[in-house]
Simulated assay, not measured.
Amino acid sequence: MGRRSVHSPEELRQLILDASQTIVERNGITGLSAREIARMIGYSPGTLYNIFENLDDVLLTLQVQLMGRTLEHMKRVPLGPDNDKNIEALAYGYVDFALVNRRMWNLFLAHSLPPGTSVPVLLHDYTNSLMDIVRGALEPIAPHEPRESLDAMARAFWAGLNGITAIAATEKGVYLTPATAQSYAKELTTLFLKGLRSEAAHR
């Protein structure tokens, strides 16, 4: 049974998000329901719909928060004078963050946008900021490449890393597992940098 509200709308919003994250981390996306969220926070299920449009809205908000945390994590990856090592460090940091948060990471795979729903602007912003970090690390390796080309390279490289994290995070891979994901990321990085330098040498 619900209780009389003793929290502000913003406090309730965060309570709902915290409870939702806990549920997803424990039981995956299939365990999430308005009733279970309400049970955890001590309010009626209808309270959720006073704050969020629906469960999809909750899940999208969790994904935005997760990408924001990813960006902050990547900003803290230490970079040095060795350009190749910088790319390796960024790749390692990204895969490490995904695997530490693998249950939440699966949200990007398990949750599909309902028809007519747009990707939140903030999610685009976080993703673009992440690509800025990667592009900045690639620029010293390919200094003569135009920005558009560097952007495409950064996104292609990150798409490969996302493929690795997607398979590893589900824990359903045969060879690509949480235990082997970093070795695959390192191999991808090595091949990517080799191809990048080879292309630059032939210009």
Rank of each mutant, 00 (worst) to 15 (best):
I16C: 07
T117Y: 04
R102C: 02
L109H: 08
P114F: 02
F192S: 09
L188I: 06
G160V: 11
V174M: 08
V174F: 14
A38V: 05
R197A: 10
T190R: 13
L15F: 06
N83S: 15
A159S: 15
L130G: 10
K172W: 08
A98I: 03
G136S: 11
R3G: 12
R13E: 08
A156T: 15
L17Q: 11
R155P: 02
G116P: 07
E139H: 14
N83K: 09
E199H: 13
V77W: 05
D151Q: 14
P120H: 03
G173T: 10
M153G: 00
P120R: 04
L17I: 11
D96G: 00
G195T: 01
S20H: 08
I141G: 03
F52D: 10
F157P: 02
Y43H: 08
Y126P: 00
T61D: 07
V119M: 14
K186R: 13
R103V: 00
N128D: 13
D125L: 10
G160P: 05
L48T: 01
T30S: 15
T165D: 13
E53V: 09
S118M: 09
S33P: 04
Q65A: 09
L138N: 03
T180G: 02
E53H: 13
A156Q: 12
G173R: 10
W105K: 13
Y94I: 06
A137T: 06
H111I: 11
T61E: 15
S198W: 05
L107M: 12
G2I: 02
R76F: 00
A142K: 05
G195I: 03
D18A: 15
A156W: 10
P178Y: 02
P81A: 14
R35A: 07
N162K: 04
P114L: 10
S183Q: 13
Y49D: 06
A168D: 06
E199C: 06
P140Q: 03
K75E: 15
I167W: 00
L109D: 09
I133H: 13
V6W: 01
M40F: 01
D151Y: 06
M131S: 13
K194V: 01
M74G: 05
E25S: 15
L62R: 06
P115F: 03
P146D: 12
R203M: 03
E10R: 13
A166L: 03
V134I: 11
Y43L: 04
L15V: 01
T22H: 08
L150E: 02
F192M: 08
N83A: 15
F52N: 07
S112K: 14
L66T: 07
A89Q: 04
F108K: 12
L71E: 08
L188K: 05
G68H: 10
E72H: 09
E145H: 08
W105C: 11
R13I: 02
L193T: 05
A38P: 03
L79R: 08
R102K: 09
R103N: 12
P146H: 11
F157I: 02
S118Y: 06
R135T: 10
G68W: 04
F157M: 01
S198I: 01
E72A: 07
R3P: 00
W158P: 00
L12I: 10
F108R: 15
T127D: 14
L109F: 05
I41Q: 07
V119Q: 12
V58A: 01
G195H: 04
A179P: 00
L176G: 00
